[in-house]
């Protein structure tokens, strides 16, 4: 039991995989609310979500507000994780989320409501897949993107 609880400090590269899933759950709720709000509050909220994504990209998923909330309020109530996870994939996923949120924000500001909502919808699919199934869609697109864009 004590062996498990010291594991995170002895392997600093690994994070509790439930952290990014908690973040994805919060993201999914925010994006769902954005879709049902009138245009002005939706614009404000997607702007805030874009900032959250940007923190994840710049500081890493452990230092986002939701990452900190997970460590402070959620993690102490859970048992020790069975396996640790590399923080790079969820950080990359935050970047993919940022792209969709930025497109949505731009479209809301330009008055292209449907374009904005479709972009939010794509981000919502990715967030739900991560929250419910632990599946990182952006990470999977990464190899397909490399295959298509870069000559080896």
């Amino acid at each position: 039991m004590s062996d498990l609880s010291v594991e995170p400090t002895t392997r600093p590269s690994g994070i509790d995989p439930r952290g990014p899933r908690f973040t994805a759950s919060v993201t999914a709720v925010v994006l769902a609310v954005v879709l049902v709000l009138p245009e002005t509050p939706a614009t404000v909220l997607i702007g805030a979500q874009a900032l959250l994504f940007a923190t994840g990209v710049l500081l890493g998923v452990q230092r986002t507000p939701t990452g900190l909330a997970f460590r402070t309020f959620v993690r102490p109530r859970l048992s020790a994780p069975t396996a640790l996870e590399d923080p790079a994939p969820p950080r990359f996923a935050q970047g993919v989320g940022l792209v969709f949120a930025a497109v949505a924000l731009g479209a809301y500001l330009a008055g292209a409501l449907v374009v904005a909502q479709v972009a939010v919808g794509f981000a919502l699919v990715a967030a739900l897949l991560n929250a419910v199934f632990g599946l990182c869609l952006g990470c999977e697109m990464y190899l397909l993107g490399l295959r298509a864009l870069r000559r080896a």
Binding site: L37, L113, V118, G121, V125, L128, L129, V132
Partner: peptide
């Protein structure tokens, strides 16, 4: 109205794809 439609579609796609992958 479109917002609710997109919300429902997104949830349906995510659950369908997730179950398929599982």
């Amino acid at each position: 109205m479109t917002g609710f439609l997109i919300l429902a579609l997104a949830a349906l796609i995510a659950v369908g794809f997730g179950l398929h992958r599982r």
